[in-house]
Design a protein around this nucleic acid. Sequence first.
RNA 1: GGGCCUCUAGCUCAAUGGCAGAGCAGUUGACUCUUAAUCAACCGGUUCGGGGUUCGAAUCCCCGGGGGCUCACCA
Length: 529
Amino acid sequence: MPTEAELITLRSEKRDQLLRKADPYPSRVERTHTTAEAIAAFQAAGEPDPDETTSDPITVTVVGRVIRQRVMGKAAFLDIRDGSGKLQLHYRRDVLGDTFDDLKLIDLGDFLETSGMLFRTRTGEVTLTVVSWRVISKSLRPLPEKWHGLSDVELRYRQRYLDLIANERSREIAVTRTKILRAIREFYYQHDFLEVETPVLQTEAGGAAARPFETHHNALNRDLALRISLELHLKRLLVGGLERVFEIGRVFRNEGISTHHNPEFTLLESYESYADYEDVALMVRDLIQYVARETIGTLQIVQSDGTVVDLENGWERTTYREALLKETGIDYVEHPQREDIIAVSKAHGVPVPDGASWASVLDNLMSNLVEPTFVQPTFIFDYPTALSPLAKRKDDDAEIVERFELFVLGYEVANAYSELNDPIDQRERMQEQAKKVASGDEEVEIADEDFLLALEHGMPPAGGLGVGIDRLVQLITGEPSIREVLLFPAMRGQLNETTPLPSDRTPPNSTNDADKTVSPSVLNEGDED
RNA sequence: GGGCCUCUAGCUCAAUGGCAGAGCAGUUGACUCUUAAUCAACCGGUUCGGGGUUCGAAUCCCCGGGGGCUCACCA
């Protein structure tokens, strides 16, 4: 009787019947082996046959969620899954007696605790002969289909738990992501970096050119912003004498959503005193190679479209000026005037937004015409000073800073510089940025007095790095959309209305007197609510 | 925000202007080595919402909503 409401009602009634026998939601559960451990133990013992008296059978208690059910009269096979894998269970009426019939109360999705002996079936599958079993969690809603699984992208993102249940690939990505984070931490620990945490709520969001989210602190009656980068606080720590620090943290940018942008994303930043951007370039290459080796065991990474990214050999270096010149024939230093660069941009078919500064027009050119061409890992060194208010100028050219960005698959994966530690220059550069706000450029670095105060106490020379973790995970998993590597990507609106549970469910403690086996016909008539 | 595509049973999908269907899941029955178990019967719909055109709309048109891709935006 399957509208969704009816499916739920049926399961609820099975729950009630289970309640009369035992609590289907016990808090204490027994488990001697994961399913993977059980199979391994069976094999390690030489696969003793429980029907033979010559050897001791392997007896285990395992737990897991029922994902398939094949009932054949007086015997049944159930597949359960736990975090380690799957195990087939064999229920036999001649072994279980009356408790065999309780299988009727089991639905796909329920969690079981089962004890018994392992054997190998005729068709070769390691299987548990169930001697005793019980329900340890009853599922009230039907799961996605067992074969086709869940493919509706919207449901996969909004109800990720269903995606994780139904799709192996989804579990794989989630696991790879945590392995990547662990490998990053290991790498930094090995290099004597301290992992630190800095504020998410800030009076002014700085360290990057992006629009922040605004919020409000009631007790202080004060507007606050969610951070857009980690940079300015981490540098304060360098001032304080922590020589090597890193943070992996969520930052928030009030911008559009795309296959490479989510409003909140995970940023890695690290700062190393007495290093410069050349040191950082070597480090980031080592870091990414280390992460790839530790997580997927290869440096040749196949993307979903078949492109192979080679993290072993690429790593070409070019400069900002060279890259633009080579790809477009434009030598930007020959176009120092705003009107001039705008004309060049338009001549190359790149539209110019109203009020764009010289720097943003130039940057636009790069991101439209040049960056997409770098598929294999490529460093672009030496950015125009106007684009990089927090980076140190080159010794021999004040208009260029010691900065590089790393591009893979046409998008930015890392950004680094020799950090600007001259407080006077820093103040002027921030004030320069402030002027852009006046002329209509909304996304610029703001002058942060607290940060400048720290710098004025002296910050050691340092090399800093920022890596978009979500994009790195995309690269390593080969996923073309950032939403696939975020467990809960940002979605517009809400989950569609769902079928509520029946309202007359009795809570476990209030003993309900018998009677209430509602017949299907009764259910059909009553359209309550 | 623009363009293109998309939304049908719990899930996966058919039906292109003419009675809204199948598989899985579910219920009942048969079945003690199955594994997408099998066999039989049954149950299941606000076709995303609203309006319109038409004798007749899942289908065509308009408005709105969700989602995907893409462009713009976005280091």
